[in-house]
Design a protein around this nucleic acid. Sequence first.
DNA 1: CCTAGCTATTCGGTGTTGCTATGTACCGGT
DNA 2: ACCGGTACATAGCAACACCGAATAGCTAGG
Lengths: 111, 111
Amino acid sequence: MGKQMTEMLKGTLEGIVLAILSGRPAYGYEITAWLRDQGFSDIAEGTIYALLVRVERRGLVDVEKVPSEKGPPRKVYSLNARGREYLDEFWTTWSFLAERLEQLREGGKQS
Amino acid sequence: MGKQMTEMLKGTLEGIVLAILSGRPAYGYEITAWLRDQGFSDIAEGTIYALLVRVERRGLVDVEKVPSEKGPPRKVYSLNARGREYLDEFWTTWSFLAERLEQLREGGKQS
DNA sequence: CCTAGCTATTCGGTGTTGCTATGTACCGGT
DNA sequence: ACCGGTACATAGCAACACCGAATAGCTAGG
């Protein structure tokens, strides 16, 4: 989409990726492809890789290098305990924000 | 709240402020106070003013200087036609994102 | 008077984030 | 040998929210 989406993804994209990893381990290329499939058509590959490096450095995920038949080895990420904790906080923050926004949207209708 | 909220506000705070202005004209100090009241306890004053300057420069709002009995004159902002259009786009973008996140949250529960 | 405190706005510097563009590398098919 | 798909990495950029401080008008208490 546009610039609005770009700005809105700041702060949520991280949560999105961690949420994906909470379901199953995955690697960067896979996550990017999946996101594009879900309609995030213009998410750059580099963005996901940088994000994964970040969450790894913060100790929210564990990494395992797995050989691939079709190219260079994959770095498979999985959410660890700290990551799950962080993801919980993310959902709390998100819920708060979503509630306020829903209220605002309702309130705006009658004008 | 914390750093997560700070990052999540990028892109949404603008929509929030425009949504407020879609209901009624308002000035910076007032908006900041209202937000704090709604639970956005740590939104910096400077942030709102900078945001208002930005949306004004983009022609999304009209401004009127109104004298105050209690201090320096207020800059009262109101949403114009372009702003309303932009706000519509914002809601579209927000809805898209909120839907994906809600899906992800549902999916994550069974793990 | 004058200091403190509330109202109201502005601005420079900082850190985080996503995007762009590019580069590296492994593999299979032609 | 070449190309396309797979897979990861990184340097430079722009946007945004935060922090801290400054400016300015008004009122009330000492």
